[in-house]
Design a protein around this nucleic acid. Structure first.
Lengths: 112, 112
DNA sequence: GCAACACATGAGCACGTGTTCATATGTTGA
DNA sequence: TCAACATATGAACACGTGCTCATGTGTTGC
């Protein structure tokens, strides 16, 4: 594997840093599949309006989330395909049965 | 995709937090394919012996790296398959010739 | 034994960051 | 226009964290 350039490492670290805060991670996870309103996020995750907005600002600035206005509301959704893939990958690992299973060559839907 | 348990979210956030520090990320990346001794890491990454060891301690405690003694040296390598996969995934994305254009200026239709 | 080496650990400090409170900006309906 | 709503932003503070310096622990060779 080719070594990464210093700037690439810094970018990756920045994304990880933002995802490394539990509330921020919960926000991003909530915005992974569908877009969510600020108020929606605050209520669902039990965060103050101000705190929610502050975190969203960081995630938006880092191009992890995108913001779209719908009337008075502003909806956020994951906008970075890398981040989406990384998170899906991580979630897939977590929801898989335990044990050191190196086989990740198949994509299947879980049982109903 | 079913929602994660709070403890799972906390665990993921903790891993991201540790990978979110540039020097720590560089250490993990250096230990991704093959194991590296402490001195090796410090010299390669231009980190003091103490700082290298401090970071390694955090990564070892979080089960991201494993430590093996070889005589006087202690070698570290990535021990967590999830982390390895996430990092390989991230690196793969970065090294791909993606022409991802972040056009953030599209408008939205008003509500009825 | 005891040096020399390789690494680990504790204390302390400067800096960053998550949170709250207050206030500002923007949007809709009457 | 005004009021109510939804979100954004700034200031301030408490806490966490990355780093250095000093010292401790463990291993090999003489």
């Amino acid at each position: 594997m080719r070594p990464l350039l210093p700037e690439q490492v810094a970018d990756v670290a920045e994304v990880f840093r933002l995802l490394g805060e539990p509330n921020r991670l919960r926000i991003v996870l909530a915005c992974l599949e569908t877009e969510r309103t600020v108020g929606e996020l605050g209520e669902t995750l039990a965060l103050s309006q101000s705190l929610t907005s502050h975190h969203l600002r960081l995630l938006r600035t880092a191009r992890i989330l995108r913001a779209v206005r719908h009337g008075r509301h502003v909806a956020y959704a994951v906008d970075d395909d890398h981040v989406r893939d990384v998170l899906r990958n991580m979630v897939a690992h977590l929801t898989e049965p335990h044990g050191h299973d190196h086989d990740h060559t198949h994509r299947e839907e879980p049982e109903p």
